[in-house]
Structures are given as C-alpha cells and as structure tokens.
Design a binder for these strands. Structure first.
Length: 387
DNA sequence: CTAGGGTTAG
C-alpha cells in the first residue's frame, strides 16, 4: 500500500524555510511592527462570525490580553501562543489564527507539534480543507513526528470531506506504524463506517476496540449504541444502556438523541416521542437534533401533517429541520408548501442544500407553477446577496 | 483550559 500521508519523509527536510536566526523562540526582545500590527487589530478587522455560547467565549477580550502581553514586552511562553491560536480557531476566527501563526513564524517561533495539530483541526472544522492540507504539508517538512492526535485529526478531516477511503487508509497506516489506538481513534473510525453503512466493518472495529481492553467512556458507548441502532439491534442497545448505568456514567444528549433516532428507524415512533418528552427538563438546544430525527421519520412514514405540527411547535429550528421537511414535502408533491417553507428558511438565514432548492424549483415548474418557481429563484438570489 | 472521538437532512 502506498503511503497516504503528505508528511511522509521524502528525502531531506526542506531547508528553504529555515532562514538564519529563525530557530530561536520568539519573542527574543521587542516585538516589531508586524506583531504590533497584528496585535493592534481592531474589532472591525475580525470576522463577524462569533459563535455565541453560554461559556465564557470572549475572543476579543483574549485578544486584548494578548495585546497587553506583547505590547508590554512580557515574553509569553509557547503555551500562550498555542492557547491563543486554539482560542481563535474555536471561536470562528480561523483566519486570524492563521495570521497569528504566520506572524509568529516570521519572528522565529518554531511551532510545536501541538500548534500544528490545533491549526489543522481548526482549519478543517471551518471548512478550510486546502489550508489544512497546507499546514499538514508544513508539518511534514518541519521534522516533527505526527502523533496519534495528528492522525485522528486528519482522519476526521478526511471523513468530514467525504474522503472515506483516504481516511480508512490513514487508520491502517496508523496500525502499520504501531501507533497505540485509543478510544478517540476507534470512535472516529466506527462513526465513519456507520455513516457509510459499512456495518460489518464497524462491528469488527468495535470488537477490536473492546478486545484491546480500552476502557469505554460515554462517547465510546454512544458510538456503539449508534452502531446497534443503525443495525436495528435495539435489545443490544438496552444492554449497553444498562452497562452505562452500572458503570456509573450518565447519559447525555447524544445518548438520548441516538436512541430516539434508533426508535424512529425501528418504526417505534410512539416510543421515540415518549423518550423525547422524557428529555423535557433539558433545554431546547439539546433536544433539537432529536426533534429533527422525529420530524424526518414522521414524514417518511407518511405523517407529514403531524410533522408540520411538530415543526410549528418548535422554538428553535436549524437547516436540518427545514431540509427534512422541504425534501419530504417535495416527495409528496406538495411543492408550494415546500416553497413557502424554503422562503421562510431563507429569511431565517438558514443554509439550504442545493438539492432541496432544485427539488422545489423543478417541482413547481413541472406542476405548472412557473411564476412561483421564478419567485422562489429570485428569493434565493436575494438571500445569497444579503448573506 | 494547549491538541483529537460520539447524534439528524440529501
């Protein structure tokens, strides 16, 4: 098997990137203009994609503190840089994270493996596949040896961008090179196998995980429960739930959602609904995915009106909610209703799948609603401009 | 709390 990793040692490590004096850690003395320029970046220069959260996510404030550190000529340790880069990534400021990374490099900061891992993960999660690849390549040229975290991160990136075979190759590569597997790596792979409906392989993988004596945490249990659910083995699911209880672990929103989806898929909508109301003491945000599962399943079982009622009762909706309904309304040839929903989702600034847009427009046209089709198209165009 | 894993639409 040929190697799939772009960081494989290929001859010598590139010399071109190592200028004189660049091996020392930054900052040596006083930060120069470039660093100041970055640090004096004002709020207007930051992208307006702050992810709201109940946690204390305040990247602007972090940036101010960081400015203070640099401008007052306090030498921050490397962990501070990594923390900053990580914080920027986690809050949607990937571009700024990359800029900071470059600026620091320019000042002789030689990134650690952890810095690369942070950036690759951040870039990947924000949809910057090419940039992620670039950093990965640089990691390969840096002489650092990637660790299990790097591998898991890159695998996850591959799966995220539907490069399943590439991801699985990395998994095999990890084995060949003798990396120790932990629950992170196994769960990443099992999750991808389940998603691609390779249930047999997913079972093999989970047997390996259990056989290797890895202690299962809640995420591992959730992964396994999801596997059994997708395979329709609900009795095994309940066994696992008992086991979770015996271990003294507590189910979280993932567990409940996976279970609700499983019940739905098994055709037990009533029980799914019961379980959803059992989640009543959780906030709506935690129940959203479960609601979406139920809506989709209701539609697929032919209860579209019931699904619409549920939809109207929801205090929070996302693009999944809309996509499910729009697609299923199209399948039922209720194109005008689908169109109405699509427009309201555009007004709510939802991202709508191209496939859903097409389905509605084509459906309207095919059933003679040419004007409605045109109107919808112009709405979509406007939404794109206004976004 | 310096890095990686688990849920839904097509």
């Amino acid at each position: 098997m040929s190697s799939v990793l772009p960081w494989e040692p290929e001859g010598e490590i590139a010399e071109s990137k190592k200028g004189p004096g660049l091996s020392r850690d930054w900052p040596a003395a006083r930060p120069n203009r470039t660093i100041r320029a970055f640090c004096s970046i004002d709020d207007g220069a930051l992208p307006a994609v702050v992810i709201p959260d109940k946690e204390v996510r305040k990247p602007d404030e972090a940036n101010r503190v960081f400015q203070d550190i640099v401008l007052n000529n306090i030498s921050p340790c490397r962990a501070t840089f990594n923390t900053m880069i990580n914080g920027l990534c986690k809050n949607g400021y990937t571009d700024n994270a990359l800029m900071l990374f470059r600026n620091l490099q320019r000042h002789g900061f030689s990134p650690e493996l952890i810095t690369y891992n942070i950036l690759i993960n951040g870039l990947c999660k924000s949809g910057r596949w090419r940039a992620a690849r670039m950093i990965l390549k640089e990691l390969g040229e840096s002489g650092h040896v990637p660790n299990a975290i790097t591998y898991t991160t890159v695998m996850k990136c591959c799966f995220r961008y539907r490069k399943f075979e590439e991801g699985l190759d990395i998994f095999l590569d990890m084995k060949t090179k003798g990396y120790t597997f932990d629950a992170f790596a196994y769960c990443t792979v099992i999750g991808a196998l389940v998603k691609t409906e390779r249930i047999e392989e997913a079972y093999q993988c989970s047997q390996q995980m259990v056989g290797n004596g890895i202690e299962l945490d809640l995420v591992s249990y959730n992964t396994l429960i999801n596997l059994y659910c997708k395979d329709g083995k609900l009795e095994d699911v309940f066994k696992l739930l008992d086991e979770i209880e015996r271990e003294g672990l507590e189910c979280d929103k993932y567990t409940h959602t996976i279970l609700i989806d499983g019940l739905c898929r098994a055709g037990n909508i009533e029980r799914a609904q019961q379980h959803l109301s059992y989640m009543n003491d959780m906030d709506f945000d935690s129940k959203l995915v479960a609601f979406n599962c139920l809506i989709d399943r209701l539609c697929k079982c032919g209860y579209i009106d019931h699904a619409m009622k549920l939809f109207e009762s929801m205090e929070l909706k996302d693009s999944f909610t809309y996509a499910s309904l729009v697609h299923n309304l199209c399948k039922a040839r209720r194109f005008r209703q689908a169109s109405k929903l699509l427009i309201s989702s555009l007004n709510g600034r939802m991202k709508i799948l191209k496939s859903a847009q097409k389905a509605v427009i084509n459906g309207l046209r095919a059933s003679g609603f040419t004007r409605d089709a045109k109107k919808l198209q112009s709405e979509i165009r406007w939404a794109k401009i206004l976004r």
